[in-house]
């Protein structure tokens, strides 16, 4: 019974051993062209469908709005009207007569400031609420009510408190984006597996080490979910807030264009607002992916 079995093993082993290097050599031959072709195909699969949809939508828009007397300009007119703004985003004629780059960068600066504050405060409060049952009982009902207040409802109050547009706008960003960060961080902290806590206990990590080495990495996927929702909300809030506080900023640019009946400029600005919002979202998502590598899959 044993003998034939070993024989079979030997027979199968030899051809495999011979075949192996042959396979390896054929694989080494066409790597570059093939990988390029595959990459091109992958990119095409992702890029072509949205391009077709965009082209179709632009066509419909053009057809609908080209008729005389239509309230909104067709894409061709938008492009003609705003060519200067598109081609030279960096001009600066003083006051609020600046290129779109300056408006966007002013808005982004406000977001960067307000959002950083809300990220720091949000994670800190989230850790507190996630870690302490009493903090949760005390604060959670408050959070649940406050988070439903719309961004612009805070603006008059903050204007009254700060008596200046700039800090008020930053406060509106802060107060809008902090809630999802707090709530998601708290959920993440509460969901840290008991196993990790046990490991920390056996190793005798002190509270600070536990925070840095266990708590933050373990809750990172949740924290980044909150941060991602937060960045979207803060971009949403700043556009609205700037319309009211005025000054340089993409929000007021839109409002100003409306007051001067430059509908094409509004459309261009909306386009930029969408792109920037998209990039911000991707930025946080990408950062989250890098930071939480290994944590998400277990």
């Amino acid at each position: 019974m044993n003998m034939p079995a070993t024989k079979i093993e030997v027979e199968t082993a030899t051809p495999a051993a011979v075949a192996a290097p042959v396979v390896a050599m054929t694989l080494r031959r066409p790597p570059r062209t093939e990988t390029y072709a595959r990459m091109a195909r992958e990119i095409a699969v992702r890029v072509i469908p949205p391009l077709i949809v965009i082209a179709l939508l632009a066509l419909v828009w053009e057809l609908v709005c080209r008729r005389a007397g239509s309230a909104l300009p067709p894409p061709s007119k938008v492009f003609r009207d705003t060519k200067e703004l598109i081609l030279d985003p960096f001009f600066d004629h003083g006051g609020i007569d600046k290129g779109l780059f300056w408006h966007l960068s002013a808005s982004l600066q406000r977001v960067a400031f307000g959002y950083s504050l809300s990220a720091i405060a949000g994670i800190a409060l989230g850790v507190l609420v996630g870690q302490s049952v009493w903090a949760m009982r005390g604060l959670d009902p408050l959070f649940q009510v406050l988070r439903t207040i719309p961004p612009l409802a805070w603006l008059p109050l903050s204007l009254a408190a700060f008596r200046d547009g700039q800090p008020s706008a930053i406060f509106v960003i802060f107060i809008t984006s902090i809630w999802p960060i707090i709530i998601n961080t708290a959920v993440g902290i509460r969901n840290i597996p008991q196993d990790y806590r046990n490991v920390a206990a056996v190793v005798q990590l002190n509270p600070l080490e536990f925070f840095a080495k266990i708590m933050i990495p373990a809750a990172a996927p949740y924290i980044f979910t909150g941060l991602r929702i937060g960045i979207g909300l803060s971009w949403l809030a700043i556009i609205a807030a700037e319309m009211l506080i005025g000054g340089v900023g993409i929000g007021f640019f839109i409002w100003d264009a409306w007051n001067s009946s430059h509908i094409s400029e509004i459309i261009l600005a909306l386009f930029y607002v969408g792109i920037v919002g998209f990039v911000l979202d991707r930025l946080i998502a990408g950062l989250g992916k890098i930071v939480t590598r290994g944590t998400a899959q277990n």
């Binding site: 490991v199 080495k213 277990n298």
Partner: peptide, 11 residues
Amino acid sequence: VVFQNHSLLPW
């Protein structure tokens, strides 16, 4: 302790 489910920190 060697834990039943290894409890290695995935990050």
